[in-house]
Design a protein around this nucleic acid. Structure first.
Lengths: 225, 225
DNA sequence: AAAATCTTTATAAAATCTTTATAACTCAAT
DNA sequence: ATTGAGTTATAAAGATTTTATAAAGATTTT
């Protein structure tokens, strides 16, 4: 099963260790960065399901990092900060932060806020299971079934299918799909999409030569139905 | 755009007044309830865009109200509470609360958290559909339907139709259409338009020889209705 | 080290766009 | 009514772009 991945951007090693231990014991996969720059690079490579961002970074302000992330990153970003002044909190929330906790924080509360944020971000249609004909996608368990049989998908295949399912009926552009799955800097790698749509169709379509679920919109992108 | 409506469920009149003044001066419409029961009734009648819920209510615990609301209510619920103990916070968040603030709270922060919550809940459900008789154009999903059946359009055909639909009733000159769809240097390629208007008519008109939607304005351009 | 997965390359097929040719329509002048 | 210039419509051939698929190479995971 695929674990949700969380990126920690914080310069204090003790905090990172504390977070890592707590998150990993709650079955999250953890990636760490100690500077803003490193955080931006890692987020683009990994596309984590959630980012924990410290405001007090050595190289650039967390506020800046937040703004740069929000140009393309749509998953939750929870701010951790020793700053407890209102203007910082308001600025962060208005710049797209999902939540703001002041240090020292209570671990249980942080975990609950992480669960809440991930739940909300995954649950676009307010159901954790999306059904489309014979296909059934459990976004919480990250399991896909066809005619009630579990289909084995790789991590990327699953991410792509889940993104399709969350936007059922909408045409998703190549650009958007690449940005969401591979990251900001992959927006021109359209061939990736063709390959992965191909493998997905082989796995979920009745007849992959005449796809009923993943529809090609030539010159634009794909649509899931 | 009309104002977002916020329901306050709190038994303390001073808090309600404080919230009401602040919310109304920020252009929210405010509805108030002083008990859990009243809150449930009002929320069902009004379907507010957000609920501010106090945990310490006289008739039933806010936790219970939260659970009952979440059986059907999908918009944000922000908990306000004098309780600052972790188990209360964790329980509320795990029961579907969007956020949890302890009293006394900072007004600016609360307003920022309200903005953040409403922003997030709204960008999950945005559609802008243009209807013209049997034709329906969903600009967000990039889909065109006729009599509720999806019509397959090429990228250029769609762009052209969307441009027509956005300017329903207006005469659009050849020049303008060519500039918008193909670009500045194609303003004289009127034949392109004839070809594409032709294919569009075949796809969307009841009788393409007697078009009802895309009308020719000889010597000038076309008009969509 | 082996297996699984991802990235890249090559190529055939399909879809779309552009261009050409021709027919049809409109409307004012004969 | 007929003519003819100007405009529009339609079909179809040709050119180009986009997509699908297999398979080889690279990387990551087990």
């Amino acid at each position: 099963m695929n674990k949700a991945e969380i990126l920690i951007i914080d310069d204090e090693p003790q905090i990172r260790k504390l977070l890592q231990i707590n998150l990993e014991s709650n079955h999250y996969k953890v990636v760490q960065a100690s500077t803003g720059k490193e955080g931006l690079v890692l987020s683009a490579n990994h596309i984590p399901n959630l980012i924990l961002l410290d405001i007090g970074l050595p190289d650039k302000s967390g506020h800046e990092v937040l703004k740069e992330l929000r140009e393309w990153y749509n998953n939750p970003i929870i701010i951790l900060s020793v700053q407890d002044n209102e203007s910082d909190i308001v600025a962060a929330l208005d710049n797209g932060a999902t939540d703001y906790l002041t240090k020292p924080f209570r671990t249980g509360e942080l975990l609950a806020r992480i669960r809440s944020a991930i739940r909300r971000s995954q649950n676009t249609a307010n159901t954790s299971v999306i059904s489309c004909g014979a296909i059934e996608i459990d976004l919480v368990a990250r399991i896909v079934k066809r005619n009630n049989e579990i289909i084995k998908l790789t991590s990327t295949e699953y991410n792509l299918l889940a993104l399709f399912a969350k936007n059922e009926g909408k045409v998703l552009t190549h650009q958007y799909l690449l940005k969401e799955i591979w990251g900001y800097s992959y927006q021109t790698e359209t061939q990736y999409l063709r390959v992965f749509v191909g493998t997905l169709r082989k796995k979920i379509e009745e007849n992959p030569n005449n796809p009923q679920h993943i529809i090609t919109e030539s010159g634009v992108g794909y649509r899931f139905q």
